[in-house]
Computed example of a mutant assay.
Amino acid sequence: MSAVLERARDSGAAAAPPRIALSARGVTKRFHIAGAELVALTGIDLDVDDGEFVTILGASGCGKSTLLRLFAGLETADAGTLLHAGQPITGPSLQRGLVFQEPRLFPWLTVAQNVATALLNAPVGPEVKRLAVADHIALVGLTGFEDAWPHQLSGGMAQRAAIARGLVNGPDVLLMDEPFGALDALTRARLQRELRRIWERERTTTLLVTHDVDEALLLGTRIVVMTPRPGRIARIFDLTSGLTRDHADAGFARLRAEVLATLDDGNNQEGVSRS
Rank of each mutant, 00 (worst) to 15 (best):
A24W: 03
R25A: 15
V27F: 07
T28Y: 07
K29M: 04
R30A: 03
R30C: 13
R30S: 08
H32G: 01
I33R: 13
E37I: 12
V39N: 02
V39F: 05
A40H: 12
L41T: 06
T42G: 09
G43D: 15
G43N: 15
I44G: 02
D45K: 11
V48M: 04
G51N: 11
V54Q: 05
I56C: 14
I56W: 02
G58T: 12
S60M: 09
G61A: 11
K64S: 01
S65I: 09
T66Y: 08
L67C: 11
L67Q: 07
R69G: 00
R69I: 04
L70C: 13
F71R: 01
A72R: 05
A72K: 00
L74D: 02
E75R: 04
T76R: 15
T76F: 07
A77L: 11
A77H: 07
A79E: 13
L82P: 09
L83E: 12
L83M: 12
A85C: 13
G86D: 13
Q87A: 15
P88E: 06
T90R: 14
T90E: 14
P92A: 13
R96E: 11
G97Y: 05
V99D: 01
V99K: 01
Q101T: 11
L105G: 09
L105A: 10
L109C: 05
T110C: 06
T110S: 15
V111L: 04
V115Y: 09
V115C: 07
V124D: 11
V124R: 05
V124K: 05
G125L: 09
V128I: 15
K129V: 02
R130H: 12
A132M: 10
V133Q: 08
V133L: 10
A134W: 05
H136L: 13
H136E: 11
I137C: 03
I137L: 10
A138K: 11
A138M: 00
L139R: 11
V140F: 03
L142G: 01
T143V: 10
T143G: 12
F145T: 01
E146N: 01
E146H: 07
D147Y: 00
A148N: 00
W149N: 02
P150W: 05
H151R: 12
S154H: 11
G156Q: 09
G156A: 09
M157A: 02
R160A: 07
R165Y: 00
R165L: 03
